[in-house]
Computed example of a mutant assay.
Amino acid sequence: MDNKFSDDSQIGVVSTFSELVNTNFKEAMNAICWSRDLAGDFREIVSKLQLKENITEVSIEDLLLLELSEKGNTAREIILNDLQLLADFGALPTLNLLKCYQRDEELDFLSTDVYSYHVDRSPIGTDTFLCTYAGAASDILPNHQAEQKILIPEIREKLKKLYDGPEAEFESFLKDYFFDLHYQPKPNANPINLGSGNLWRLAVEHPSQQVLPCIHRAPVENDGEYRLLLIC
């Protein structure tokens, strides 16, 4: 097993799917990695899939219809197995072929798209699972190396000018529009790249969560390269 992440207290490293879903988050640890060096040609799969929109959901049927080499077929079997493992666990995995996500350009002082460091929130107990098979991989950031954007004075003042309701409801306004989910890296912050092939479980903010939610962001895509991403 590759232990390249094991020196970081934020990350738990495991070697099986069972460990991935059964290891508890604790203290600073809010990301768990099933560290893998996958065989197979995932780029071949990307080259044979058809991008219909900037984000195209790839079905199991789409995968099964592809004419692939031996290495391409190995990659397909890995993806199908990951989808099955997550479905059997009770998750709803999606495989996406990605050119890019939509950018949020509405506010010039605060981006709220997935390229911004953010946490996920849910009303029920859940986790975020993701694996990048091809293309650029996401980053996470230790919580102590980031600051909530709504607490940065100049951003908070601009949000107050934007808000036109009663002062007592300002915090609710920030939450309703998801401004509170976004974070700014502190000076000298050290993002951790999630790498290709690793299946990750990230902590989500929800009422029963015992740890801080994991701060993460989507990567800027490499020119001329699509991403193949499993997420749920």
Rank of each mutant, 00 (worst) to 15 (best):
E70D: 14
I60D: 14
D37T: 10
N143V: 14
L85N: 15
L68Y: 07
I11N: 07
D180Q: 01
P187Y: 00
F129H: 07
G90R: 06
H182T: 04
M29P: 00
L151D: 13
V21E: 05
K71Y: 12
D37G: 02
H118F: 07
G195K: 05
P219Y: 06
I215Q: 04
V211Y: 02
Q84M: 11
P123S: 00
E27P: 04
I79T: 11
A203P: 01
G165D: 10
P219H: 04
E225D: 04
E167S: 09
F179V: 03
K48H: 09
I32G: 03
G90P: 13
R217A: 10
L110G: 12
D8I: 12
D88H: 06
R103P: 03
L49G: 04
S196T: 13
Q210M: 13
L95W: 05
L65F: 10
T126H: 01
F109C: 08
A91N: 06
T23Y: 00
F25V: 02
E205C: 06
Q210Y: 03
W200I: 08
N81Y: 14
P207M: 05
P187W: 01
K175L: 10
P166Y: 10
G197L: 02
F5T: 01
E67H: 12
C100Y: 09
L64Q: 15
Y133V: 08
V14E: 01
I152C: 03
Y177C: 02
T126K: 08
M1E: 08
D223E: 14
M1I: 07
E106L: 12
N222M: 09
G12R: 00
I231T: 14
N22C: 07
Y133G: 10
E70T: 15
T74E: 15
P93A: 10
L92C: 08
E157M: 12
S59I: 06
T112L: 08
P207G: 04
E27F: 04
L199Q: 02
T16M: 00
T126I: 10
N81M: 13
